[in-house]
């Protein structure tokens, strides 16, 4: 029986001494899981199409309507051309990443799959780590690829108005797209693991991204600025922009660090609860 188990489960009992090999198999198992569900393909296709389409659409519309644009809008373009190219696609594409991140963890609970998963790899924290690594890397790779593709599409479209060249000063903004999406994906994955409910977790993340992040701007005074700056997705988003929002208190990289810190704290909480709670 033991020999049979070792064939079926990612952790083979006979390899008990080699932790590295174990984790490799766990990664492989999680990769297989992510790769074999339709929602992955749907979400990623939505992300890629939305991002690339808007990387073209926004610059195109800007060029077409240039004469009617207000001086303020025109100034905006010159101040932050890369943000103008990637911003709109990112705003929409991030929703697909958030939904997918939630699905990676929360859907295992709704289908009961989590019980088989935990049976297969009883070391729950390592299971969560494997999921996190596989998913974050996947989104990072796709995010960087579309970031540069989108950038080149947008740059071509903008050519008649402004020429944007990559240099050490602005390449961070393009790389930032993949960095932000990857961290957001991980953040959503953790929220899914915490809430264990697909609808609840998606609604929560969407509310955070679209509602709460903007709404806290309304709170007046210094408290409002703090809340706005340290709200996780606002903090993370600035890695993709040249100019910081007026009420933003820290630098781009610091902002990304805040987002990462939020994610890490929630990750630790999710890991703790995963061990403590019954599946």
């Amino acid at each position: 029986m033991a020999a049979r188990d070792s064939v079926m489960t990612p952790i083979a009992t006979r390899d008990a001494g080699t932790g590295h090999a174990h984790f490799g198999r766990l990664l492989l198992a999680e990769w297989t899981k992510i790769r074999s569900v339709r929602s992955t393909y749907w979400s990623l296709i939505a992300l890629i199409i939305a991002f690339l389409f808007f990387s073209w659409l926004f610059p195109y519309l800007t060029v077409v309507n240039w004469k009617q644009a207000s001086p303020e809008q025109q100034a905006n373009l010159y101040l932050d051309p890369i943000g103008s190219i990637t911003g709109s696609g990112l705003f929409i594409g991030q929703l697909a990443v958030a939904v997918l991140g939630v699905m990676v963890t929360a859907s295992e609970y709704s289908t009961g799959m989590i019980r088989s998963t935990l049976l297969a790899s009883p070391h729950r924290v390592r299971m969560l780590a494997a999921k996190s690594i596989v998913f974050t890397l996947l989104i990072l790779v796709i995010g960087e690829v579309i970031a540069f593709l989108g950038f080149f599409i947008g740059r071509q479209t903008f050519k008649s108005l402004v020429s944007v060249d990559l240099n050490s000063g602005n390449v961070r903004e393009v790389f930032g797209v993949g960095l932000y999406l990857a961290m957001l994906g991980l953040f959503a994955l953790v929220v899914g693991a915490l809430l264990r409910h697909v609808a609840g977790a998606i609604t929560g993340i969407v509310a955070l991204l679209l509602v709460i992040s903007n709404l806290i701007q309304l709170i007046p005074g210094r408290i409002g600025k703090y809340l706005y700056t340290y709200e996780p997705t606002n903090a993370g988003f600035v890695i993709t922009a040249k100019r910081l929002p007026d009420n933003f208190l820290i630098s781009s990289w610091q902002g990304y660090g805040v987002f990462a810190l939020w994610t890490a704290v929630l990750w630790a909480l999710a890991a703790y609860l995963l061990v403590r709670r019954d599946a």
Partner: peptide, 25 residues
């Protein structure tokens, strides 16, 4: 017939479509 797909579509309809139409010339 799928929770995540249906919620995503709803969110798209309410929060994404308005942004797209804003861009249209």
């Amino acid at each position: 017939r799928h929770t995540a797909a249906a919620i995503s579509t709803l969110v798209g309809l309410f929060f994404v479509v308005p942004i797209i139409t804003n861009f249209l010339p």
